[in-house]
Design a binder for these strands. Structure first.
Lengths: 150, 150
DNA sequence: TATTGTTATACTCTATAACTATA
DNA sequence: TATAGTTATAGAGTATAACAATA
């Protein structure tokens, strides 16, 4: 049993005036659902991004990858350790610069990346079902303006 | 000296097809700038949200506040400890339910909340300068549809 | 029995300094 | 001297189980 005060919704009108408040909530919902979705193929979001970018840019070096995804170099190491351990990606020494590793996907890596993209597309269709394609393009354009302005 | 391959931008076209990718990047930019902004008055984002909601809903209980902001109850404790320690909020026993605390802002708390809202508004004007008011309303409406659909 | 606030704890994510081997 | 990858570590942020006091 609850009393009247408990049933009253808490007023967050002051926070709702801000774009960032809504953006954080929406981003959290997308993030939580995508994380749940990718668990099916035992990938985390960051691991999926890393794998997909390697598939799309074979021969990439770790430092380039870290820059592209705004990951700190040290945090990339264990992600790649895991992908290599699972035979999804391989690290091979670059002959012309023996400090660096070239990252290439294995066939299994390419296959899993394709599956991950499929699941991600399904997830977005599910979460964004109330937003049509034109509106999604608008949303992306506005968010890109925020990113580009920074 | 870098070679041609190093200078080539990493292709993230596959990830850019997803709304969530752009949303995460935009949300991160807003979040990073707001965190930097609030440091000026020694508040974290979550602490600011808690303070503002208490100012807007005096007498609120911790469990209601936790529900409203989607914080786990245990994680709220240290936030309130800090706000109480800084004399911005006070916890007083509810006479009709001696398990609960009513949360009320102090005068200093109300004043700091007003300052925080001012700084947050300035921050949004800065980060969203390339997006006019109509577009901001569109953005909020679309994100609310995502949140409501979940 | 159930709920409020609390404690302890653990897990993920992210950030920094310093090391090694190469350049 | 600088860079690529690595190690160790520390700080947020977040989640769960279990407890005391009270309902």
């Amino acid at each position: 049993m609850v009393d009247a005060a408990t049933e009253d919704a808490v007023d967050d009108a002051i926070l709702r005036q801000f774009v960032g408040y809504h953006m954080r909530r929406a981003a959290n919902i997308l993030q939580a659902d995508l994380a749940r979705t990718l668990k099916e193929i035992d990938l985390r979001m960051i691991t999926m991004s890393v794998l997909v970018v390697i598939v799309d840019n074979p021969g990439l070096r770790q430092s380039q990858l870290a820059d592209a995804l705004a990951i700190e170099r040290p945090n990339l190491v264990s992600i790649l350790d895991e992908l290599e351990e699972r035979d999804l990606v391989s690290r091979t020494r670059v002959p012309t610069d023996r400090r660096a590793y070239a990252l290439t996907p294995t066939q299994a890596g390419e296959k899993l990346a394709a599956k991950a993209l499929e699941l991600t597309a399904e997830h977005e269709d599910r979460i964004l079902s109330q937003i049509n394609l034109e509106e999604r393009a608008q949303l992306v354009a506005l968010m890109q303006r925020i990113v580009d302005g920074a």
